[in-house]
Amino acid sequence: MGLGAYVAVSAALFGLGIVTIISRRNIIYILMGIEMILNAANINFVAFNRFGLTEAGSLEGKMFAVFTIILAAAEAAVALAIVLNVFHLFDSIKPSEADLLRE
């Protein structure tokens, strides 16, 4: 399997993430969509690390993916705290209800 196949999977996963974010009526889905997008990015990093013009055994892309995972963990923790808080404030976790920003 070549680079193209992996990049295609990554692109498709990215697209699914976007669709999840914009089409579902629940904040938790937005989080799920973000996780998918981050995963898609990770696949790209690792795939290019494997197939790109890198030295054998190079680590750059993998290290980047590790940091992305760390970031995702931090993001998930904070985002879920925010979800709980939004629920607490609006009694709902529909993003359409949390529209105070519009004021």
Binding site: M1, N42, I43, V46, N49, K62, V66, I69, A73
Partner: peptide, 21 residues
């Protein structure tokens, strides 16, 4: 995705993916 990482010779990342995600 973890499986994909394995195919890309990134065993550590695959384990991290399963553990963390």
């Amino acid at each position: 995705v973890a499986g994909v990482f394995v195919l890309l010779e990134s065993d550590f990342l695959a384990m991290a993916q399963i553990l963390i995600y």
